[in-house]
Design a protein around this nucleic acid. Sequence first.
RNA 1: GGCGGCUUGGCCAAGUGGUAAGGCGACGGCCUGCAAAGCCGUUAUUCUCCAGUUCAAAUCUGGAAGCCGCCUCCA
Length: 490
Amino acid sequence: MGLRVYNTLHGKKEEFVPLVKDKVSMYVCGPTVYDTSHIGHARSVVVFDTIFRWLTQLGYDVTYVRNFTDVDDKIIKKANETGEDCTTITEKYIDEFHTEMDALNVLRPTIEPKATGHITHIINFIQMLIDKGKAYHVPGGDVYFSIESFKDYGKLSGRNPEDMKAGARIAVDEKKENPMDFTLWKPAKPGEPFWESPWGKGRPGWHIECSAMSYEYLGEGFDIHGGGKDLIFPHHENEIAQSEAVFGGQFVKYWIHNGFVDINNEKMSKSLGNFTMIKSVLEKYSPEVIRMFLLSNHYRSPIDYSEDSMREVSMGLDRIYGFMDRVASATRMDGSPVKGELWDEFSEAMNDDFNTAKAIACVYDAVKKGNKLLDEAGQMPDDSSQNHLSCVLNDIKAISNVLGIFLIDPEVYFKNKKDKGMADLAASRTAVSDVCESAITEAQIEDLISQRKQARKDKDFSRADEIRDQLQRMKIILEDGPAGTTWRFE
RNA sequence: GGCGGCUUGGCCAAGUGGUAAGGCGACGGCCUGCAAAGCCGUUAUUCUCCAGUUCAAAUCUGGAAGCCGCCUCCA
């Protein structure tokens, strides 16, 4: 069964057949770089990164373009507020975006074009629209796209201009022939950044950059265009209008849109003051927990960010790493290159419209079965069990390269977790009255563990339990296994 | 007002007309000095409600209720 993709254009899942055999061209709308990125940006980026990885895994030669919108009213507003110039602002947020996305294991796209680097292409594109009678220039320097010149306007979002006119929520602009016409080029006010153009000094409107840059890198038509659901209208609708009005053919074959991240079941909004930034989430949770959280629901469904859901994901990740660790120490064999049952199930889930939620469930299922096998086999799994287990481990490693999680060596993963726990403990020391209990080193923990070991040997269980309780108050959990006692943070 | 989406066990959640994945939680058991971890078992005769199509529907059709998103910058 091949890849099937939900196409917003037709509202249903379709078999994925790229325009050019073995190649995929994909364009995703990136951020407007005027502020810190929030968890919703992270979702979109992680989702399309995973799609990019899966397409690559399927053997396609993928050209992945993700832009930065670095000329925009909001950037200019910020510049006026802070006194910095626009370039300083956009560069700062592009750097920040890269740092955060790198932390989340997001691969860099093939090309990351910036609007300001393509002003000539944008101007040429607008000129083509004017030449074809699809756009018009008005006194004052504005250039608008003419909705009425494009019969298919509304086909992506399923609305027609007549209905929208009746809605009357659009502020009427006297210069426009039709209130629904949108800006391609706008004149610069004094002090604003500008570029020379046939229509005077000005800057591009928002939608045109994507048409111009996707044409530049991917051609007149390409396979996949993605972004958040909110971009369907007007942004993507307008892109279709611009590109198809100029070239006549189909602009994009498959439109893919991701759902939102809610915060405690509420939409992120400025009025609610619940904008949750990636950097603050990264302070609390490991990058893999965040990434796994973002992939734990289907990409089109809304996903709710809350302490509870993050805790659940965190526990699940521990469980999977715990299993990987267990298998690594119980098997001697190098993983065979042969893909196993887990990989097949995983592939099927990914091929079904990138169903990462189901894909992760497949991993859990394999972990459960593998743990059972390990329990039954005891210390010495036989060859057949070892074979099976190393195959599962191998599949998980292959999956890790697609999902961008489970990438760390299990020992390092748990070591990191301990370090984080120790750091948190140290940080909370000042806030806790019981200074002695909080100020503990790893050596002291080890010492307490050996004291407890002796107490247990002496059958002094009340002393042993006392030690365990003491550590537990510091969120340190002891686990007695066949190879001795290990500890971890809760 | 226009357009679109969602409603599955205590909670989160997948579900492609063929008889309800997975996770968390809870309870019982194995293991343990007792725990923890891991494992096993139990936890939806039923998928918001009503009607219809079908041999067969959570899945298709029509209707109702509730929730949400977009239509203005928005991932």
